[in-house]
Design a binder for these strands. Structure first.
Lengths: 195, 195, 195, 195
DNA sequence: CATGAATGAGAGTTCATTCAT
DNA sequence: AATGAATGAACTCTCATTCAT
């Protein structure tokens, strides 16, 4: 990638992040392209030099978010931890990413149905990949007798739901740090699995 | 309430339910007033005889949903059950209502930010009331030594998050009935509280 | 058709005619929906109560024009005239319609390529039907020995081209009436066919 | 003209031809400056080094086309042929140029109204010159008794219309060569003039 | 010379809302 | 009580044009 292309990519990233911020604050529809542009001191027209449509922007948010989550998981996958500790790591990592990339992930969680078919497919594939990894951990734990028998899919939904909801109420001014929250959630949500 | 008013109220309720359906399917913005009207074989103009604005419709959805949840809780409150069993009942009841009034609750959970300030206040008050009741149960449990010491607010958020997320994935065609799901969630989510 | 529907149809027709006028004056692109609206003292938004898009408006122009031409031909078809006289009638009628519905036909002749595929198909079908009728007359004339052998398709193109071009230069202030022009063209263009 | 200027002129000519191609394919408006640039592997910005505006490009097309036609006529003018044969030569030459420089002439014929006033004047002057030459031939023919008395202007319009329309339907894959078409048109259109 | 980047003026379109009838 | 009709504000997107580098 040339210097020029790099800079353009960087600018696009900034635009996506500004979009994420506004999308997460006001929702996809209520955030206008003009506002997103203004946020970066661009004009409405200029932004279209970098993006192809508002939908594209939404898709980039989703994609970036999923990529971040998948990267996390890749690291954990190779950690060699036992299933229970690995699952806790996943929960903690998920939550910490959720908060550190708050806007990005919040957008993703709140605007599924806004994504057009062709974009949605890509994102759903990544989400499935993510959940499959978690499912593998749980199944491994069951096989090893560390976890009791449970409906795996449902447990994942439960854990994901609890974790994702954090985007609705988390405030950095709260009494607990995000690490503490992550730890608490990890412990709370993994405990009922133990046999 | 006169006969006339009663009939108007009934029709408005129908409109709200039709709106809930469309809002939950397509989102607040993507559902148009015209579609809502068409759903009930009204015309766009006519509907304004019963409602004052699209926002009003959204608010009614939220309000109806919260009233249903609060009614549930009222019953449980007077059941005389011990805290652990009472909390499980709350979770089960919450989940069953969520599913039986799917559209209504889904709208509520997915469109906070769309509610205008003045409406939002009312809904938030009811939500606080709902959560306060759950907090009371947990605190009672802690006091009685049935539950261990936990950050109450956070546990509520965790439970609510897990439960509410069901709206994202539940399908009546799944392998478990909603009662079984409710039971599983209740057990799973209350277990880590036990001392 | 009810009274209401009739009135709506009439208004739509007016809009189409206003559009035809502006399209023929300034071209499809340079005529804006707002101008078309202003022409009829509508607002830009109101016009969309009657039409579905600017393309729709263009299509209606084309369709109306072709229908007028086809109606003319239907009359001539049943006149029982011999081929040479019938062909002259077609040319005269074509030219007179072209001028009396100047805007409509001019739009049609000048903006083929602007029509989107799905609309274009319909119009092209009608145009083919029109030209087929003329071809039939010429073939009949050849068979009867009134016309000499000629490449039929090319003659039609020649005649149509000459006639349609009138839209480019005709002015009601010119020295000849449109009837005289029609007669002159009919004589001039049919003469070389005679054997 | 210096070397530099010459090269610039050459490049400009290429740009004009690329523009002609796109204008004739998609119409003046639908062809974007970016597409024209891309056709020649320029960038949108670069092209403005050679041209002053999109209008300029359109004007150049018109101008080039008219110059080609006028050059043809200049040759015929000095051929010493009798009026009837001279007129046939004009028609043939017109048609052959129309086809060999298809894009250029097609643009010219289809986008009168797009030309801004100041440019239009220049083109119209050339067109008048062109038509005046044809008028002279016809008048000469009438004076010499070869042609019958006719409204000259109208005959020219008729001939031009028929000929120009060829741009609408001509395809190199058709059954006749362009020379044959030219001959056919010339014969067909001159015949009715003979006394 | 060439171009990446930016701009701004508008275009078409949608839709909640109003209102006369 | 109901509705056809109209409105206007807002929105997304396009594109010819400019300019610093």
């Amino acid at each position: 990638m040339s210097f020029r292309e790099e800079r353009a990519a960087e600018r696009k990233l900034n635009i996506v992040k500004a979009a994420a911020k506004l999308f997460s604050e006001k929702g996809y529809h209520d955030a206008t392209v003009e506002e997103i542009a203004r946020e970066l001191k661009y004009t409405k027209g200029s932004i279209y030099y970098y993006i192809s449509s508002k939908q594209d922007l939404l898709f980039q948010c989703h994609d970036l978010a999923m990529n971040l989550l998948l990267e996390n998981i890749e690291k954990i996958k190779n950690s060699g931890l036992p299933p229970d500790r690995m699952l806790k790591e996943v929960v903690k990592s998920h939550i910490e990413t959720l908060v550190s990339e708050f806007n990005l992930i919040t957008v993703t969680l709140g605007s599924d149905y806004e994504l057009e078919e062709k974009y949605a497919e890509i994102i759903i594939a990544k989400r499935d990949q993510y959940e499959k990894f978690i499912a593998d951990i749980i199944r491994e734990g069951i096989k090893k007798g560390i976890f009791r028998e449970v409906p795996v899919k449902m447990v994942i939904n439960l854990i994901m739901g609890a974790s994702n909801w954090i985007g609705r109420w988390f405030s950095p001014d709260g009494p607990m740090t995000i690490q503490e929250i992550g730890q608490f959630y990890a412990d709370y949500l993994v405990m009922p699995l133990l046999s």
